[in-house]
Deep mutational scan, measured.
Amino acid sequence: DVEEQIRRLEEVLKKNQPVTWNGTTYTDPNEIKKVIEELRKSM
């Protein structure tokens, strides 16, 4: 579920933690925001 994935990513973003997405680890909050944007567009 895309909305659930977005929620999880936003939680990680709030905690300022790195997130691994599709085999890539993002540590930059701006990169994580881009991933969230892409997910929103795909909905």
Score class of each variant (00 low, 15 high):
P18S: 13
K15Y: 13
D28C: 04
D1C: 11
E4R: 05
W21C: 04
V12W: 11
K41D: 09
V2Q: 07
K33W: 10
L9K: 00
I32R: 00
T24Y: 11
E31V: 06
E3M: 14
V35S: 01
I36E: 00
E31P: 02
V2C: 05
L13H: 03
E10A: 03
V2M: 11
E38R: 06
R8S: 08
D28W: 02
K14N: 12
E37Q: 10
E38H: 09
N16V: 04
Y26F: 09
T27F: 10
Q17A: 11
D1H: 12
K34T: 08
E38M: 12
R7S: 09
R7I: 07
Q17T: 10
V35G: 00
K41F: 10
E38G: 07
P29L: 07
V2D: 03
D1F: 11
T24M: 14
E31H: 03
L13R: 03
K14E: 15
T25W: 11
E37A: 11
Q17P: 06
T20W: 12
K41E: 12
N16W: 14
L9I: 06
E38I: 10
Y26V: 05
T20S: 11
K15C: 09
Q5H: 10
M43L: 15
I36H: 00
D28H: 05
K34F: 10
K15G: 11
M43Y: 08
L39P: 00
Q5P: 02
K34P: 01
E37H: 07
Q17M: 15
V35N: 01
P29I: 07
P18F: 07
E4S: 07
T24L: 13
D28F: 03
K33G: 06
E31S: 07
R8V: 15
S42W: 11
V12Y: 15
Q17V: 12
T25A: 05
E4A: 09
I6L: 07
K14T: 11
Y26I: 13
E37M: 08
V19S: 03
R40G: 03
E10D: 03
L39Q: 01
S42R: 05
D28K: 04
N30Q: 13
T25I: 13
N22D: 10
E37W: 05
N22K: 06
E31G: 03
V35Y: 04
K34C: 09
E37T: 06
D28A: 04
R40K: 13
K15I: 09
P18L: 07
N30I: 13
T24V: 15
L39E: 01
T24W: 07
S42P: 06
V2I: 15
K34N: 09
L13S: 04
V35H: 03
E3N: 05
S42V: 13
V2L: 14
N22H: 07
G23P: 01
N16H: 11
L39W: 02
N16C: 05
D1K: 08
G23L: 02
M43Q: 14
E10H: 04
N22L: 12
D28I: 03
K33Q: 13
T25G: 02
R7C: 04
P18W: 07
E10V: 05
V2A: 08
R7L: 12
T20Y: 13
V19P: 02
V35A: 05
K15P: 02
T25Q: 08
V2H: 06
P29R: 05
T24I: 15
N16D: 08
P18H: 13
E11N: 08
Q17C: 08
E10K: 05
E10G: 03
N16A: 09
R8K: 14
S42A: 12
W21T: 02
E10Q: 05
W21E: 02
K15D: 11
V2R: 05
V19T: 06
V2G: 04
R7Y: 06
M43P: 06
N30V: 13
V35K: 04
I32G: 01
I32E: 00
Q17G: 11
K14H: 13
T20H: 11
L9D: 01
V12F: 15
T27H: 10
Q5T: 14
L9G: 01
P29H: 08
P29W: 06
T27S: 10
E37D: 14
I6S: 01
K34Y: 04
D1N: 13
R7E: 07
I6Y: 02
K34H: 09
N30K: 10
E31Q: 08
M43W: 06
T27W: 10
N30H: 12
D1I: 12
R7D: 05
E4N: 07
E3I: 12
R8G: 09
L9T: 00
I36F: 03
Q5M: 14
E3K: 10
R40T: 06
K41I: 12
E11A: 10
R8A: 13
T24A: 08
E11G: 05
L9Q: 00
T24P: 01
T27V: 09
E3T: 07
P18R: 03
I6T: 01
M43A: 09
K41W: 09
N30D: 14
W21N: 02
I6A: 02
R8T: 13
V35E: 02
K33H: 07
V35R: 03
V19I: 14
L13P: 00
T20A: 07
E31Y: 04
E11Y: 05
K41V: 12
L9S: 00
E10L: 09
N16S: 09
W21G: 02
E3W: 14
Q5C: 06
W21R: 00
R40A: 04
E31N: 04
L13W: 06
T24Q: 14
I36R: 00
E3S: 07
K41C: 03
R40F: 05
N22E: 12
Q17S: 08
K14F: 11
Q17F: 15
K41L: 14
E37Y: 04
K41R: 11
E37S: 06
L39F: 02
E4T: 05
T24H: 15
T20I: 15
R40Q: 08
E38A: 09
V12I: 14
K41Y: 10
E38C: 15
R8D: 07
I6W: 03
E10W: 06
Q17H: 12
K14C: 09
E10Y: 05
S42E: 12
R40I: 13
E4L: 06
E11P: 00
K33F: 10
